[in-house]
């Protein structure tokens, strides 16, 4: 017994180190599993409020650029209003039918924390469950997709950016609808890699890449970017396509959070078929 105590006293420094180190590494591994919700993230109350104050200051500096963007977006929206179109209808009768119903709801939010320099990047936005933002909702910006909501607290939410080596997103080439998965290699924040497009498909530099809508998170047809380069995978039957992102992740400010009202239904259905 005494020998044991002596051993602990003699090596307490190393044992202490081991304990702290194991605990930290445990935290890293636990947190790497990005579907798991964790309490200690930037969506919690204290850090959420710090970043809120910080981004208030930052958004002041970027006001000019932001106004430009908002006004261009407004113009687009005005253009899509019903009143701007002339009706070709011959009949004067309006028909209300039930074939259309709402599938996606959109909320706007403000990015209050953001990073592009890590391997696994996250953002924090200033909307949470009180404002109708929940886990696994899609986040897009006016110029393209941004990420997926990971955790939501009452008034904040943390978002996994697509600049995260853990995230795979289903994407397709707009002109011929071949789909593959998008993966970030952790190097350049302006580019992302599209894999699993077979060799026989005809692609060109400059082709538009959009979301495929197969994942129940992103609606179909959201812009991702354009092809800037492609090569044949070594020894494989697939292309390795470099996509230039249309969103500048260093300048994100306002984003839209999109919820799919039919997600649960789709998931349940897919689950039952998988079990068969």
């Amino acid at each position: 017994m005494r020998a044991l105590i002596n051993f602990f006293l003699k090596h307490y420094y190393f044992l202490l180190f081991l304990a702290f180190e194991l605990f930290s590494v445990f935290l890293v591994i636990e947190n790497n599993n990005y579907q798991k919700s964790s309490f200690l993230n930037s969506a919690n109350f204290i850090s959420g409020n710090i970043y809120n104050g910080l981004s208030n200051f930052n958004s002041y500096i970027n006001l000019y650029e932001l106004n430009e963007k908002l006004s261009s977006e407004n113009t687009q929206l005005y253009n899509s209003l019903k009143t701007t179109y002339k009706s070709n209808k011959i009949s004067l009768l309006e028909i209300y039918d039930s074939t259309y119903f709402q599938q996606y709801v959109t909320t706007s939010a403000h990015v209050i924390n953001n990073s592009v320099n890590r391997q696994n990047n996250y953002l924090t936005i200033d909307k949470g469950e009180n404002q109708g933002v929940y886990q696994e909702m899609a986040v897009t910006s006016p110029t393209g997709i941004v990420g997926i909501v990971k955790n939501a607290s009452n008034n904040f939410a943390s978002v996994i950016s697509i600049l995260n080596t853990n995230v795979h997103i289903s994407a397709m080439i707009k002109k011929n609808e071949y789909f593959g998965s998008l993966i970030w290699d952790g190097k350049n924040y302006k580019e992302i890699t599209l894999k699993d497009i077979p060799n026989h498909v005809n692609i060109n530099i400059g082709d538009t890449i959009i979301t495929s809508g197969y994942s129940s998170i992103f609606p179909k047809g959201k812009l991702i970017g354009v092809i800037s380069d492609f090569e044949h995978e070594k020894g494989g039957n697939f292309y390795l396509i470099t996509v230039k992102l249309s969103t500048d992740f260093k300048k994100l400010s306002y984003v839209y959070v999109i919820g799919n009202l039919l997600k649960q239904e789709q998931k349940d259905l897919e689950k039952t078929s998988e079990n068969d």
């Binding site: 180190f17 930290s24 590494v25 935290l27």
Partner: peptide
């Protein structure tokens, strides 16, 4: 550990800075 942990909580990198700081202190 506390130093690394505070940085971790504020920058969403749970455990990474903490483990590096503990190693450095060791």
């Amino acid at each position: 550990f506390l130093l690394g942990f505070s940085i971790d909580i504020l920058s969403n990198t749970l455990g990474m800075h903490a483990s590096a700081c503990v190693f450095m202190a060791f």
